[in-house]
Design a protein around this nucleic acid. Structure first.
Length: 418
DNA sequence: TCTGGGGTCCTAGGACCC
DNA sequence: TCTGGGGTCCTAGGACCC
């Protein structure tokens, strides 16, 4: 029998900050999105203030002040590194770990059904807390959707561990949880289900998969089967990305064409590092620019560049930016965001040879890019960068209150006082 | 004034083919 | 006047996730 455990860190970003700044312990902590725009992570204290996930910062300023909430910019270098540490530990507890997001992973516990799995989960929870300082919750069940739900329930009731393999307990828990708590049921579906008088997870579980498929498609059918203990959401390996997006909002709106080009080139540089890291090449790229969504006369436009052959050479993508950007750039507009999407991604071992074209410099290109990435990895981000990315970068995003990169930058290593 | 970024999967509909 | 049927592939858009 298949058994899944979903291990999910509690309030991950806020907890990471607390590990290195104990003054934040038991205090309300909120973490902001890129550009300090929205609140994307909250400690329990902040959740208790009814501040929703994704809330725009400016709408809640006074409430945050009133309750002396510690408001921090996001520090992805720190969170990414802490995440890796947690995942390494998990791999000691199961041979089959699927990292699902920065703060959660599915563990397969097949073959351990005769063990006391609740005890097993408690041991995992304890060791992660001890070795990383991070609190996690664990949900156990025969399908991923149920494991997610078990985890949700564990968090909600502050249990840390919840095992939903037993059917009677499962029914009780499902009847207590709203449909919106189910993995795969978002806002739109919640509303539509309500019209069919399906308001909690148990009602959804008891609905007819075939009929629901007619209404809502195969995804919902699978969700219902999963709620009934029939596993049908596959475990996917760590596959290469099919699209790579790099985009950012600007700290302050940008009107100038050259600055837009700088930003686009910076996104290309970032996207290409990720492309090479997964050992792929891209056959094309979309560049896009847009004004503020929240204004009248919203303007967005994009231009697609298809290459004659796939590459991972940053320079090839940068070469055409200026010309293509001019096609979509309208003067007088305050642009709020720009970005790129790498497309037609294929493994870099796969090479479609062109009858009329062979690239004599291909090998030098590869070596140059490998060296570039190596230097930046060892010496720190942007040790080497392209002139086309600009030097002043007036458009860079806001990040007014970021904690140090304690674990990824020698200069920021925490000091212990005795 | 101020509202994130990076993904995946599914479906419907159009273009095109024989 | 009558005007097929069965495919494939691609794309855009919607919904969802963290």
């Amino acid at each position: 029998m298949t058994i899944y455990a979903l291990v999910d860190c509690n309030n991950f970003y806020a907890s990471c900050e607390r590990v290195f700044n104990p003054l934040l312990e038991n205090k309300p902590v909120a973490i902001l999105s890129n550009n300090d725009g929205c609140i994307i992570a909250r400690s329990e204290e902040v959740k208790a203030l009814d501040i929703p996930m994704g809330a725009p910062l400016y709408q809640y300023q006074s409430l945050l002040m009133k309750h002396q909430v510690h408001v921090l910019s996001s520090n992805y270098a720190l969170y990414g590194d802490m995440s890796q540490r947690v995942m390494e530990i998990l791999k000691m507890w199961s041979p089959d770990v699927e990292v699902y997001s920065i703060d959660e992973a599915f563990l397969k516990l097949d073959g351990l059904e005769h063990w006391d799995l609740e005890k097993y989960a408690w041991s995992i929870q304890k060791i992660i807390k001890q070795w990383t300082g991070l609190p996690v919750s664990i949900g156990i069940a025969p399908t991923k959707t149920l494991a997610k739900l078990a985890n949700h329930y564990a968090k909600k009731k502050h249990l840390y561990v919840c095992d939903l393999r037993e059917v009677t307990l499962r029914g009780k828990v499902l009847s207590e949880l709203a449909t919106s708590a189910v993995w795969g049921i978002g806002r739109q579906l919640t509303e539509k289900l309500k019209k069919l008088d399906i308001c909690n997870a148990q009602q959804l579980q008891k609905s007819s998969p075939k009929q629901m498929r007619k209404h809502f498609g195969v995804t919902v059918e699978r969700t219902i089967l999963e709620l009934n203990g029939i596993a049908c959401v596959e475990t996917k390996g760590e596959e290469a990305k099919k699209n790579i997006i790099a985009s950012r909002s600007f700290g302050t709106p940008v009107r100038d064409l050259h600055q837009l080009a700088e930003a686009i080139n910076s996104h290309i540089a970032r996207a290409c590092v990720r492309l090479r890291k997964q050992r792929s090449k891209a056959g094309g790229i979309i560049i896009f620019i847009q004004s503020s969504h929240h204004q009248k006369d919203f303007y967005t436009n994009s231009e697609t560049i298809l290459l004659p052959y796939p590459t991972s050479d940053t320079r090839v993508f940068m070469q055409q930016v200026k010309q293509k950007l001019q096609k979509i750039y309208l003067p007088g507009i305050y642009y709020k965001k720009a970005g790129v999407i790498l497309m037609d991604i294929a493994p870099d071992t796969f090479r479609q040879n062109d009858l009329f074209f062979s690239d004599p410099s291909a090998q030098n290109t590869t070596r140059l890019m490998v060296m570039l990435d190596k230097i930046n990895q060892q010496m720190g981000k942007n040790t080497l960068f392209w002139a086309a990315q600009g030097i002043k970068r007036l458009w860079e995003m806001r990040s007014d209150n970021k904690s140090p990169s304690y674990t990824t930058d020698w200069k920021n290593i925490p000091t212990a006082f005795t």
